[in-house]
Amino acid sequence: MSLILDHVNYVYGDDTPLAVKALDDICLTIPDGQFIGIIGHTGSGKSTLMQHLNGLLKASDGSIYFNGEDIYDKDYDMKKLRSKVGLVFQYPEHQLFEVDVFTDVCFGPKNLGLDQREVELRAYDALRKVGLPDELFYQSPFDLSGGQKRRVAIAGVLAMKPEVLILDEPTAGLDPRGRDEILGQIKKLQTETGMTILLVSHSMEDVAEYVDRIIVMNKGKVMYDDEPKKVFRHYKELEEVGLAAPQVTYIMHALKEKGLNVDVDATTIEEATRQIYKALTE
């Protein structure tokens, strides 16, 4: 049970001289239950990649297998794929349209052709999972705060009970607390339900704390694909392509250079504090 990309290529504007290779020979295996961060700057191909995973874009070349089945097979049910691989776009609150929060969240499961009871059950469950207070369920989604709207929009995808959840910049525009709350909620979701999560982001700092694995995209290619601390070892190369490791990485390297005996692989403040404290008190 997994998502496999086999030599996937995607070319924009195929027939024009301005053809751009947005994805260049991507090979990836995404096993069940992993929390993955996809990092890259604007135009690196990360959003294009994301849209391939649930069939919104079709690869110019190569194959994608979901749970062992080729999604480009003629008989393959795309609608089913889309319910199994949930996709939350950037600023998802811009897609809300119903009169109240609950009805909006029902839209996804209703499209799956489920009976009313199941639809409502799922909607309720999804709203609980994103931590939206009950008293807001029957408010107009347009009266909510930015952070609340975003939760509703995420619930709208969760209600389809996907096995894989892909989120494109789910924290864009939120304040620091709002960002931590959403990321914390997603992490909780992953540990509780064992859902596979792909988090698309610009920021290493945001994902470093949460993910098991980081895929760095650059110019349509996978540049690094490893656990966070191993990826951050390449902080100099990352800088060259306009990305950066978390500030902690730089701090640890600077300390090491000054002769302090610390492990440069520390990626979170917690780890770094422990390391530095130990080194200083030794």
Partner: peptide, 13 residues
């Protein structure tokens, strides 16, 4: 284009 894709991702037809 973007909204359309987002709603298709939510099963819209």
């Amino acid at each position: 284009d973007k909204i359309m894709k987002a709603q298709i991702a939510r099963g819209a037809d």
